[in-house]
Amino acid sequence: MDGIQLLMEEHKNIIKLTQVMKEECIEILEGKAVDTQRFREFIYFCRVYADKHHHGKEEKILFRIMMAELGTVAEKLIRTGMLVEHDLGRYHLGELEKALEEYDKGPSSAVKLDVITNASEYAALLKRHIEKEDNVAFTFANRSLPLGFLELVNQETEEFEGSLEAEETKRQFDDWLSKQNIQ
């Protein structure tokens, strides 16, 4: 199993998820009420698939190995770039969740704006973030990590993927994603 390639494949799924979020935001702009249950599904899959499953592999495996083996450049790229953006994504999901709670208490244009703002900013952030990881961080890792450490990434990724929790997360997300109308 090529751990870095798997991360890049998962990025494609995460982009599909953010496309669905953006489409829901557009429908709100066109007059639809906020479907808070649908947005809670988005938050669930963002937290479970994108963050815990996908970012878990990045943070616990690839980024850990890169920072240990590739020195200051990797340290700066990861700590001040990739990890900051992971945290910013978590922030937007938390703010989206708060906006949904407010909407449930009393729908208003201001709360709709908070829903749209945080959902669309999360989507935009992840799009930019994925481009950086695919084109900079992952390319740097593939080019710079010695073969033995790339094999360690692959081995640890395979172990991570082999857990029952990881298999269930992938199955749930694949099922959900297959039911979405993605253009």
Rank of each mutant, 00 (worst) to 15 (best):
E97N: 13
K132L: 13
Q5V: 08
T18D: 07
I43C: 08
T139S: 12
F42D: 01
R143L: 14
D87Q: 15
A99R: 01
L62E: 02
A119H: 02
T117C: 06
N154A: 10
D134I: 06
A166N: 08
K16L: 14
F45P: 01
E101Y: 11
R171V: 05
K60A: 14
F39T: 03
Q37I: 08
E121S: 07
V111R: 07
H54T: 05
F45N: 05
R128S: 09
E69H: 08
L147Y: 14
I15P: 05
E168A: 12
F149Q: 10
F140R: 01
G31P: 05
S144N: 12
E151R: 12
G3C: 06
Q19C: 11
E121M: 08
Q172D: 11
E151C: 04
N118T: 04
K60E: 14
I130Q: 03
K57M: 08
M82W: 08
G148F: 12
E97G: 06
T80V: 13
E101S: 11
L177S: 05
T157Q: 06
P107R: 03
H53I: 10
K76Y: 12
D174H: 05
E161N: 07
M67R: 09
G3D: 04
D175L: 09
F140S: 01
K16M: 12
N118I: 00
L29T: 09
L88E: 15
L126K: 02
K16E: 14
L150T: 03
L7H: 04
N13Y: 11
K105T: 14
A119L: 00
E27V: 00
T139F: 11
E75G: 07
